[in-house]
Nucleic acid binder design. Structure first.
Lengths: 250, 250
DNA sequence: TCGAATTTGTGCGTATGTATC
DNA sequence: GGATACATACGCACAAATTCG
């Protein structure tokens, strides 16, 4: 039966995938049922099932019990600009960055003091157990949650200053750079490490996804003269957003 | 048999998962074989298989045909530096960037001319159907595939020049910026858009994953005076790598 | 409203190929 | 070569959800 070729279920999955990406099976249409796949490709029940599972794992289709397997909508991901850099010239192909989402929506937040965990301590260059201010955000755009963020700031730095609580006082909600400048801390560097993983159930409840959806995780750390002053985990649903960096070369 | 409880394969997978995370099955040890799982849990071969598949899909274990199923090391994701920026000062917390993976390994590539698809044409600012040079790369580090890349360059720009083929000639493998400079095209900007999705079966075959594993996708475009000169899709397994950006503030 | 047909999801047993030891 | 163990494949059964007459 098999001799050196691809496994049958990958061959079937590949053919169906092609039909999906080239548009002959557009979103919201139903895939052939398991029985029909079995007939059309001359394979067994298990192979048809396994092929569907591959496509489901790839997020291209979703199965609805008793109804069928349907091609999922794939919204064009919107862009979230993460870099402050702007080209100097006038006419550039980057104009759309201005109009793109730059957290222009609404947000909620709540802060509480906590002990630094081992990983947070490492990122902030402090000792585990040192006190930090931990703030959780939910960013919404047009009412829809688009981003979760958890930030940590060492209380050794901001404690007993007017900017200790990120969202209170005259500089509430102004951003890390502005707040730190108010206490004479000049933020001059930022690192962002972008990773991805399946979303946790709790995250996806808020972000409006289904279990198994992929999220982007941005670990951001602000530095002032080489010293970390804030670090944050930003969680973004990957099916709706991308993070964009725009950098000079050289 | 079943009545409202968990499926048997999830129960078995859950028990094995617990043993893995609590350390009683440390990394590099072998799981009980399918036959032993069948005996120990009193389930069928299929259930044992399905349970192993769950753990493989979660990236906790990997199957080695003919040998066994082994608990995977869970490496702290390594960093792939994507920004050319380096701080000026001497002692900074960023020294490790130098030693991090910057595609220092080996790579294979193959180029062929093609017609620009609609999306590639849009990214390069050309017309669909215009001729482009398409180059596919597999980057390896210590023999292990860490990165796939597909790049497109407009042949209107590089055709009939010494750098038409990225990996041939005196500047082969030198990078886009250097090659373009050789034909008096000064690359001055780059955009990178980072997204994530479940990996495709073919990608994961190369990258050493399992259908369902998450990959990071970086859409990179180089510009010279506002004109796109190269664009690429970079695919990276998210369980092993993160992409790091280091930016000045202001 | 009821019930039959369809479809997915889960589970079982078995057989064969193939890589590793 | 033989034993072991995973990978693929086939066929079957049944539960649960959905659809539709």
């Amino acid at each position: 039966m098999t001799f050196g070729e691809q496994p049958a279920y990958l061959r079937v999955a590949g053919d169906l995938r092609k039909k999906i990406v080239d548009g002959s099976l557009p979103p919201r249409t139903r895939l052939p049922s398991q029985a029909r796949i079995r007939e059309e490709y001359g394979v067994s029940d298990t192979v048809a099932l396994e092929a569907r599972k591959v496509l489901m794992a790839e997020g291209l289709v979703e199965g609805r019990s008793g109804s069928g397997t349907y091609v999922r909508e794939r919204p064009v991901p919107r862009r979230i600009a993460r870099s402050g850099y702007r080209p100097t010239g006038g006419a550039t192909p980057f104009r759309q960055e201005q109009s793109d989402a730059r957290a222009r929506g609404t947000w909620e937040s709540s802060s509480e003091q906590a002990d630094a965990s081992r990983s947070v301590a490492e990122r902030l260059g402090i000792q585990p157990g040192d006190r930090v201010m931990c703030t959780k955000y939910v960013f919404r755009e047009a009412g829809e949650a688009m981003m979760l963020s958890t930030s940590w700031e060492p209380l050794a730095l901001t404690g007993r200053t007017p900017v200790m609580l990120p969202e209170e006082g005259p500089l509430g909600g102004m951003g890390v750079v502005e707040r730190m400048r108010a206490i004479d801390v000049v933020v001059d560097n930022v690192t962002e490490e972008v990773g991805a993983r399946p979303g946790l159930a709790e995250e996806l409840v808020v972000l409006g996804g289904v279990p198994g959806h992929v999220v982007l995780v941005v670990q951001r750390t602000y530095y002032a003269s080489g010293r970390p002053v804030e670090t944050a985990d930003v969680v973004i649903p990957a099916d709706r957003y991308r993070v964009a960096y725009h950098l000079p070369v050289k």
